[in-house]
């Protein structure tokens, strides 16, 4: 897999980063090295092995279907945002 500036620009888009040219260049080198390192996994035979996504020993954890009081109130949470109007978070124009 060839990692070049174009790959980095694509990943930056997926990651929502407005990278500068200088950063793009530095990250190209860094990611090339990191992906080079993790690619050694190719050597390992995993034919027929089931994947593990989590190591928690229990499957489903059930609870009663009822509303539990939240620690934080709507006011607490809205107080954390930059702009608020009529109990809503205000953002710049989208369209």
């Amino acid at each position: 897999m060839e990692i070049n500036c174009e790959t980095i620009k694509h990943l930056a888009k997926l990651s929502d980063f407005a990278l500068s040219e200088k950063e793009t260049e530095a990250l190209t080198g860094d990611l090339k090295n990191i992906i080079g390192y993790i690619s050694q996994l190719d050597e390992l035979d995993t034919e027929g092995v089931e994947p593990t996504y989590q190591v928690f020993e229990m499957d489903n954890v059930w609870r009663d279907d009822e509303i539990i009081d939240q620690e934080a109130s709507r006011e607490d949470l809205l107080a954390l945002t930059k702009e608020e109007k009529e109990n809503q978070i205000k953002v710049p124009r989208v369209l």
Binding site: T7, I8, L11, A12, L14, S15, F17, L19, E23, A26, L27, D30, L31, I34, I35, I38
Partner: peptide, 15 residues
């Protein structure tokens, strides 16, 4: 920078 590297690697291995 290290946060960015990890986020981008993550997007790479999942893409």
């Amino acid at each position: 920078p290290e946060n960015k590297r990890r986020i981008m690697i993550g997007n790479f291995v999942l893409s």
